[in-house]
Amino acid sequence: MGVCQLLIVVCLFTVCTLVPRVCCGNVSSGGTRSTLNNSAADFDSFRKKFHRSNQVSSETFNSRISYIQDAALRHVYLNSFSTEPQSAKYGMNQFSDLSQKEFSDLYLRATSDGAPVFSGLSRRGLPAKFDWREKAVVAPVQDQLACGSCWAFSVVGAIQSASAIRGSQLEQLSVQQVVDCSFRDAGCNGGSISQALTWLKQTKVKLVTQSEYPYKAKTGICHFFSQSHDGVVMKNFTVHDFSGQEEAMMGQLVERGPLAAIVDAVSWQDYLGGIIQHHCSSQWSNHAVLIVGYDTTGQIPFWIVQNSWGTTWGNKGYVYIKIGGNICGIADSVAAVFL
């Protein structure tokens, strides 16, 4: 790894403004000055585009401008790796006025308890492309808002898809119920896929629909339902480490349904679309997602991953991650559910 590559990795895991300026060798001094001089206008445009209607103090205004400047410089470096037509692109999105620490504190609150290495057999004769969305068993993209509940969205997404695969009508189940009631986790302050699944298995809690228990983007008091109340019960689950065995992971997806996974999403603050191949690591788990499919027909094979940051982020709420090499730690801790 070159010095510049090493620095950007450090930058992505710390609050850093100097390193992007050092790394971005492709940015001329004139271009940098132009970026800084236009930053106030850029921030005003940003606020209009992303509906930032709230009033900001002069101190906050200056801070947000600084974060926009840092983001613009970061994007130049991140995009310097995008040599393939399908490569990921990075630029301004709804998170660009946040510092890297703010972004992590608000959105990257999942933890991993580790997972045993998968020791099963790889499934033979897998299709070159598979997407559970085409089976109408994947619910629409949700938005967790300023709540570290990605772990709950991932778990609930897997369960509601498993229920639909078994023949039930596809319904959005209550994420808020898991946020409020999974006592092993910390609600909007973060949680673990494994701990939430263990709680569901041990208690046999019935997940009710989102309409019955709406999402509020804040941790609340657990609301209990009677045993006679309708809901979906998860009977069991598996969690495995598929690093180095992503073909076997593809088999699990086809056989079991959408998979809940923990990833490193620090660089996703700047993601606009395309297939991620760089700028994230394994063993730095911080965010939970739902893997709904894969595609190996193109030049770059990729996982199809549903995120919980709304449809204005990424590929209409989805992110594509290269298959092979455990990019973003996509294979480190992967869960399948059984109903």
Rank of each mutant, 00 (worst) to 15 (best):
T198Q: 02
Y318E: 12
H278I: 07
V19E: 03
A331M: 07
H223C: 07
S104Q: 13
W284M: 13
G191I: 01
N93V: 05
I262E: 12
N236L: 02
Q277L: 04
Y215P: 06
W132T: 07
F302Y: 15
Q283S: 12
Q195V: 05
S211T: 13
D185K: 07
N37F: 13
N54H: 14
A152T: 00
S122A: 15
G125L: 01
G31F: 04
G191F: 07
S66M: 12
G298P: 00
D270E: 13
A335W: 00
S28Y: 11
K235R: 15
N315H: 09
D230C: 05
L290C: 07
R184S: 10
Y107M: 08
H75N: 15
D97V: 08
V337K: 00
L259V: 07
G293W: 01
L259H: 07
L200H: 01
D270P: 00
N189K: 14
T198S: 01
V239F: 03
G167Y: 03
I193S: 00
S168V: 03
V292W: 02
S149V: 11
Y294M: 07
A335R: 04
D113A: 11
G2H: 11
S228E: 14
K101V: 10
K48V: 11
D113L: 12
D44A: 14
V156E: 08
G114V: 10
